[in-house]
Design a protein around this nucleic acid. Structure first.
Lengths: 156, 156
DNA sequence: ATATCTGCAAAGACTTTGCATGAGA
DNA sequence: TCTCATGCAAAGTCTTTGCAGATAT
C-alpha cells in the first residue's frame, strides 16, 4: 500500500490495515474519543478520556498515536498559544466540517466558526494558484485563526 | 500613561518611557536585532545575536523582553510547528510590512508573501463584522498560514 | 531613592526516546 | 512467527520562576 508516508488519502476508523498500520485497541479508542467530541483536546485531555475505557494506556501511546494520525492526515494539530498542542478530527466524520477558530486572548476559550467559507475558499484558491506559480510552492493545508476577546472577557 | 496593559498604540524604539517601561541596554539591543532582520528568529537565535553586542545578557532576559514586546503589540509571536516560538517585528519599521507565511513541511523553511492582501483584507473585514455580531467577539488580530512543500522539497 | 530590571540557577511543562514486554496479522 | 505497538521510566527542549544584586529615572 502506497501511503504509509502520509501522502495518500486519509482513512477513517478501521482503515489502518492495508497501510501497514495495525488497528489496536488504544488506537481505536483514541479515534473514538476524537470522533465523539467537538472540544479541542490536548494530548493529556485525550489521555484522561481514554483512560476510563482503557485504564492501562500510557500517555506515550497517546502522543505516538496522535503523531501517527496527524502524519496520516486524519487529524489536525493546533496551537492556540497556551503551550500545549490540541487535536481535532478533520472534516468528514460527524464533526462540524470545515471551520476555523476564534481564540480569546482573555480566557483562552475557543469558538469554532464556519462563516464566509465560500469567500475564504475563493481567496485560498487564488492564493494557492498565485503562490504555486510564484514560488513553486505546493500548498497542502492552511490555517486561519482570529484572536480577540470573547463577550465575557470584554466586560472585564 | 494608559497602556502598560498593551491596549494602547504600539510604540517604537525608544518609546518605552512614559509607559512605565524602562529603556535598558538589553531591550534596545533586542529591538535592534529584530529591526535589522527579516528572518524568523527564535528566542535562542535572538539570544545569540544579542550576545555579540552585549555578552552578559541572559536568555531569561530575552524571554522576558520578548514577552513584554508581544504584550505591548510591538512584535508578533509565531508557531511554525518546530517546537519553538519565533518572533517578528510588526509592520511599520523597515520591515516587509503586512505579510503571511508559507511553511514548508519538508524542510521547515519559511517564505514570506504579501500577495492577495487586498482580497484578504476584504475577507477579514467581513469576517470581523460578522463574527463580532454573531458571537460578540472582538477581533484584535489574525493569523493566516499555508503549509506545503517548497520547490526543493517537491523534487525529493 | 526606589521601583524596576537583570542574570544565574533551578524548577516547570510538554513531548520524545530507549528498551523490554506484549499483541496483531 | 515475526514484525509492529505498548508502557514505563528517563531524558530532552523550550520556557518560566525565585531571588539577590544592579540599574534607570
Amino acid at each position: 500500500m502506497p501511503w504509509k508516508d502520509g501522502t495518500g488519502p486519509p482513512w477513517l476508523h478501521g482503515k489502518f490495515k492495508g497501510c501497514g498500520y495495525r488497528m489496536t485497541m488504544p488506537r481505536q479508542i483514541i479515534l473514538d474519543v476524537l470522533s465523539g467530541t467537538t472540544e479541542h483536546l490536548s494530548a493529556e485531555d485525550i489521555y484522561h478520556k481514554v483512560h476510563s475505557a482503557y485504564p492501562s494506556i500510557g500517555l506515550t501511546t497517546v502522543y505516538r498515536t496522535l503523531e501517527l494520525l496527524v502524519h496520516a492526515g486524519l487529524i489536525h494539530k493546533f496551537d492556540f498559544g497556551d503551550g500545549r498542542a490540541r487535536y481535532e478530527l478533520v472534516e468528514g466524520s460527524q464533526n462540524t466540517g470545515h471551520h476555523h477558530h476564534l481564540v480569546c486572548t482573555g480566557c483562552g476559550g475557543i469558538i469554532d466558526y464556519a462563516d464566509f467559507i465560500d469567500q475564504e475558499i475563493e481567496l485560498l484558491k487564488k492564493t494557492e494558484k498565485g503562490l504555486s506559480k510564484k514560488y513553486n510552492f505546493k500548498i497542502t493545508n492552511h490555517l486561519i485563526q482570529f484572536y480577540g476577546l470573547c463577550a465575557k472577557c470584554q466586560k472585564q
